[in-house]
């Protein structure tokens, strides 16, 4: 079964801006799916239509086979949302924000309180349960939104740039938690600017440009689409780069070199040339920005 099925989705705003132009998208159940695109590409509009914050102009949207036009309450019951911006009452307590959301989803008070405790503990906010939301740090507020999105135990979690402005430590922690949720069977739909996030976590991705999907594939295949890989080479001292021009070497600092390698070229050949030039190599690793290259080439 598909978690999300979008057919020929169109959204034209009142000012005439066509934000989404006939998008077809299928996210299978259990997938970890990324929507990638530049600002204004239409990612947030698609998500907002899916969760009921924006009215679509035409097209069909189904969540676990529930059409959002005919079975809107059943469709919404399947979705948890972590929006891009903070959208809770800053003057309410953390516990109230989460438990009230559970109530809005029709969960009885006793169960709502139990679920609230569970998710707040999971995101590490239980000791802040009686704190006013406005007193939380930025990272805590973001975790609060994740807890709120999960309190009714949704089958699909939609995250609109959840790690924007989040420090590295928290981002990594959030990735682990999202992986854990996905492993438990929760389908995850993610929009992000961090392509590293997509490469690390997502199985499939769609790239959106000007309201249309320009590429839809597995992250693995999208990576294959790249013909070149950038390698970061750590060296003890910088030596002569003579004979290495074909690799387009870039000296990052006294101990770091970046080179480009075509897919059909052997890494060993490059390393032999470096050793011949008296380089003392301490580490070699791919830069890991393959998807970024593809992304930029499509935009």
């Amino acid at each position: 079964m598909n978690a999300i099925e979008i057919k020929n989705l169109v959204k034209t705003y009142k000012n005439g801006t066509q934000a989404v132009k006939g998008v077809d998208l299928v996210v299978p159940q259990g997938d970890f799916f990324a929507l990638l695109g530049a600002n204004g590409a239409g990612k947030t509009t698609i998500i907002s239509i899916l969760i009921g914050l924006v009215n679509k102009t035409s097209g069909t949207v189904k969540v676990f086979d529930h059409n959002i036009d005919q079975e809107f309450d059943l469709a919404k019951r399947c979705i948890g949302v972590v929006p891009q911006e903070f959208n809770f009452n800053m003057f309410e307590k953390v516990h109230d924000i989460v438990s009230i959301q559970a109530g809005f989803f029709g969960i009885e008070r006793k169960i709502a309180v139990k679920n609230t405790e569970e998710v707040l503990k999971k995101v590490g906010l239980w000791d802040k349960k009686n704190a006013m939301a406005r007193t939380l740090s930025g990272g805590m507020k973001r975790r609060l939104m994740i807890a709120r999105a999960l309190v009714h135990k949704p089958r699909v979690l939609v995250l609109d740039e959840p790690t924007a402005g989040v420090d590295v430590q928290l981002r990594v922690g959030m990735w682990d938690y999202l992986r854990e949720l996905n492993a438990q069977g929760v389908t995850i739909l993610l929009t992000t600017h961090y392509l590293e996030e997509v490469q690390q976590m997502c199985r499939n991705a769609a790239i959106i440009k000007e309201g249309q999907i320009v590429r839809l594939d597995s992250v693995k295949n999208l990576n294959k689409f790249i013909t070149q890989e950038t390698y970061v080479i750590a060296v003890k001292t910088m030596e002569s780069l003579a004979g290495l021009e074909a690799y387009k070497p870039v000296v990052v600092d006294d101990h770091t070199l970046e080179v480009e390698l075509n897919r059909d070229e052997q890494l060993n050949g490059l390393l032999i040339k470096l050793i011949n030039n008296k380089f003392d190599i301490t580490d070699v690793h791919p830069k890991g920005q393959r998807l970024e290259k593809l992304f930029l080439s499509l935009l």
Partner: peptide, 18 residues
Amino acid sequence: FGAKFQRSIEEMLVSPMQ
């Protein structure tokens, strides 16, 4: 209007509340 202004109205809009 406060809920609209703070966008906490979205808590209701994303829920199945009729």
